[in-house]
Design a binder for these strands. Structure first.
Lengths: 345, 345
DNA sequence: TTGAAAGCGCTAACAT
DNA sequence: ATGTTAGCGCTTTCAA
């Protein structure tokens, strides 16, 4: 029980070679004769030796740890992304160290300190805003950052999002084509680029179509505040009520649907059309059947990892990229359909 | 840009003290004069110095990393638990390194290797079965393990679950008191202790009440297989249909409700009563309003962390504990109520 | 209280 | 191809 930790030195002694020979055997692309390699592997096997990642990290400067900063996991889009991210990185020999940025406001700075203390090779920031100090700090530390589902105009920061502006436009187009007269919008947290871009695209199309936004409330991407926003928007006389609403993400849209149907007794889509954004799993449940813009988590994660690896492997030459992935508009039953509707953009 | 990494040595030089003095200042409980400490902190501040966690880990043998092995994040109980776990550990200066065990079957062994390579101070295994080899390997490596939401009779392995046996009994009691005649059960993955214990408790009470299980299918805790299980159980002539079903977790129960209501056009609870287990957020949504046994994620995580810390801080004396936390039975509208029902157990 | 010195387990020149 | 040597940045005896 509780055997001592096996080191490369012990393997070396057992195999009758030098300690560095052992190291080479476990270093891909090092030069060792097959004979030595065999001896070493055999000894290592018998002793149950495995290289210490931390020691390796110290001398090589590569920890093979990616820090993930995430604000909340309540919105099912994030667990899904996390699962894909972790799996993808795992395949490439990296692992995800999780940092929750939820609690206090200013604590994002502490979190960044902690994350850098671990000598991570890269950072993914999901649903977290970026300040330029933080960016600078990471740049000084030589740690690449990729924003996931947020973007920000900071020099040298890569980001991956869906094409929120185009998505917002698409929703507006669909709603207008569906002959809705009084169109409302329930916003997410106004500090979020996703929220801003979705709203901007949405309003842009509305304006082009000569339609004025009929009502607007803020739900902050938060369940309870979305519920309140839904009440403020719909618990009013029928003639002041929107006949359609775009809710800035599915998480809030589901709650708003509950308010509309169960609290106020209205029908969807006969009385009110609802459109969301993300296409989280419950959107597809028949009890909701929510029309929504899909965010393609798998593609978004793939781009995130690719950007990260690019920066890690080519620290000098890699240039920051800003990726916006278009997603299909998923037409379900929560919004009245235009005659003969076909998605275009 | 890209400043060099600051080391304790550089701080020492700037502060005019020895490198070990700097180390002491950043080591809680070391002996340093206030004067030295002030000088060092000032220099560190100016240089932007922070101790390298990995180097510290190497010499101290404590990485302050906890490995989390988790099979899937689809069931919302796990993201919720992960969020709480990460926050709790963060407060104690630990962080979570995530390992997904999903993909291949035998890959749990590889995952264990990888996890040990990182010299983690402890491991939490969530929704993952434990083999005794793995347990042995960790014990040899001196790394404590806690099973989360699984338990297993392996010497020296701590586990934290809800009281699944009592929970299963409670559900049976409720259903029988509600005067159901034909009671069905949809099982989770049969390799899972949670599944087995819930079913055992459920059947035990049924038997004591002299009621025979009317139907049984297996859903494997998996959405699509649960859907199929639901169809097999309910897409049958009315007289062969259960009038109540206990589904082994909410994730499956929601799907089964969809099958019952939307595919088969039956009413809940008038035609069929449905009871789940976990109390995930959607269970409380009015579109489902699912009666269920709550698993108290916050308590379960607290116990998990406490067990882990116990083992980490007292490696010799700490003894494995098996915690089963009781949860309240949450009566909502998806199951017919007994007259004047009050929960007891 | 402080500094000097010895490593933690490993990789990466440098020699041979 | 292999061994020797010098660290990576830190904690921790051990003396002073």
């Amino acid at each position: 029980m509780m055997a001592e930790k096996i080191t490369s030195l012990q393997v070396a002694e057992k195999a009758g070679v030098s300690q560095s020979a052992v190291s080479r055997v476990f270093t891909p692309g090092a030069s060792v004769s097959k004979k030595t390699a065999d001896k070493v592997r055999k000894a290592a096997e018998e002793l149950g030796y495995r290289p210490n990642v931390l020691a390796r990290a110290m001398v090589s400067g590569k920890s093979r740890i990616i820090g993930l900063v995430v604000a909340y996991l309540e919105n099912h889009f994030y667990p899904e992304a996390l699962e894909i991210l972790s799996n993808t990185l795992q395949e490439q020999g990296y692992h995800v160290l999780v940092f929750m940025a939820s609690q206090t406001a200013g604590n994002i700075d502490n979190v960044m300190d902690e994350i850098l203390d671990y000598q991570v090779d890269g950072i993914v920031m999901a649903s977290v805003a970026m300040s330029s100090d933080i960016a600078t700090r990471c740049q000084q530390a030589g740690v690449p950052i990729v924003l996931f589902n947020r973007s920000q105009d900071i020099e040298g920061i890569s980001s991956v999002t869906s094409d929120n502006h185009a998505g917002g436009r698409q929703v507006a187009e669909f709603l207008i084509a569906g002959d809705h007269q009084r169109i409302g919008y329930i916003a997410g947290w106004e500090g979020a680029s996703t929220q801003r871009d979705r709203e901007a695209g949405f309003r842009e199309y509305l304006q082009e179509a000569g339609v004025e936004l009929f009502a607007r409330e803020v739900g902050d991407f938060h369940t309870e505040r979305a519920r309140d926003a839904g009440r403020r928007m719909f618990d009013v006389p029928a003639d002041q009520r929107p006949d359609a609403v775009f809710v800035a993400n599915d998480h809030m849209a589901l709650t708003v649907m509950d308010v509309i149907r169960f609290e106020l007794g209205l029908r969807i889509p006969e009385d009110v059309s609802v459109v969301g954004y993300d296409d989280v799993p419950p959107a597809d449940w028949p009890a909701y059947n929510l029309t929504t813009m899909r965010q393609r988590a798998n593609l978004m994660v793939a781009e995130t990892v690719s950007a990260l690896m690019e920066h890690i492997n080519n620290p000098k030459t890699a240039s920051p990229k800003r990726v916006a992935i278009d997603g299909p508009f998923i037409v379900r039953g929560s919004a009245r359909l235009p005659e003969g509707w076909t998605p275009k953009g």
